[in-house]
Each structure stands twice: as C-alpha cells, then as structure tokens.
C-alpha cells in the first residue's frame, strides 16, 4: 500500500494505492492527516484495489474520531469492488461519497467553513 497526502486549502487529500487490509491499516492510521483528528480529509480511493473489513474499520474509526472534533472524512472515486464492501456493511449511510475528488474537496471546504 502507498499513501500520499496533498493539501487542497484547508483539506488534505489522502490517496491510497494498493490494498487496505489488516496488514496495512496501521500504516494508514499513522499517516499525519489521518492521525490528526481535527484535520478534515478526502480519501481518494481511485487506486485502492482491495478493501476488506479491517480496512473499512480503519476508515470508520477515522470518521468517528474526526467527527468528534467537528472534522470530516469524505470518500471519493471508489471502484465497484470497494463500493460493494461499503454497501454490504451499510457504510455508505455514514460517509459522504463522491465520484470526483475536487467535488469532495469543495464540499469539505464548505462544511468546515460552516463550523
């Protein structure tokens, strides 16, 4: 798995490439934008090939911690395989999901400006 962080105004875009499963979640949770609960992020999943329940658990934990600090975790560009995991677990009910990273950044910027 490869994680890259890019700043877009007050929002950090966290792009994940490869696999997010039990063996790689620790690495994700250590990345600066994820470990800072006050930082709103857009998780760009365009190049995420595989997600299992451990990886999903890490994303949900991130969402919860950030919402406790009035920050957001938005999801963008998930493929059908990742979307299937979100749908079975009903995770799509708690995340805002976009098909475009720039649109997610705009939405996150509006949300954080409101707070």
């Amino acid at each position: 798995m490869n994680i890259s962080e890019t700043q877009a105004g007050s929002i950090t875009i966290v792009a994940i490439t490869g696999t997010l499963d039990a063996s790689t979640t620790k690495e994700l949770l250590k990345s600066p934008a994820i470990s800072n609960p006050a930082q709103s992020v857009v998780m760009d999943l365009e190049h995420l090939d595989f997600l299992d329940s451990s990886g999903l658990g890490a994303l949900i934990g991130t969402l919860r911690k950030k919402r406790e600090r009035s920050a957001e975790t938005l999801i963008s560009c998930m493929n059908d395989r990742v979307r299937r995991v979100f749908e079975i677990t009903n995770a799509h009910r708690i995340f805002h999901i976009f098909d475009d990273t720039a649109a997610a950044v705009d939405y996150a910027t509006q949300l954080t400006a409101r707070i």
Binding site: I97, F98, D100
Partner: peptide, 9 residues
C-alpha cells in the same frame, strides 16, 4: 448535492 456527488458523471 446530488449533482456534486456525481460531478464526474
């Protein structure tokens, strides 16, 4: 919001 969430589409 719907249109924004499907912006690429």
């Amino acid at each position: 919001e719907l249109l924004n969430k499907s912006r690429k589409f």
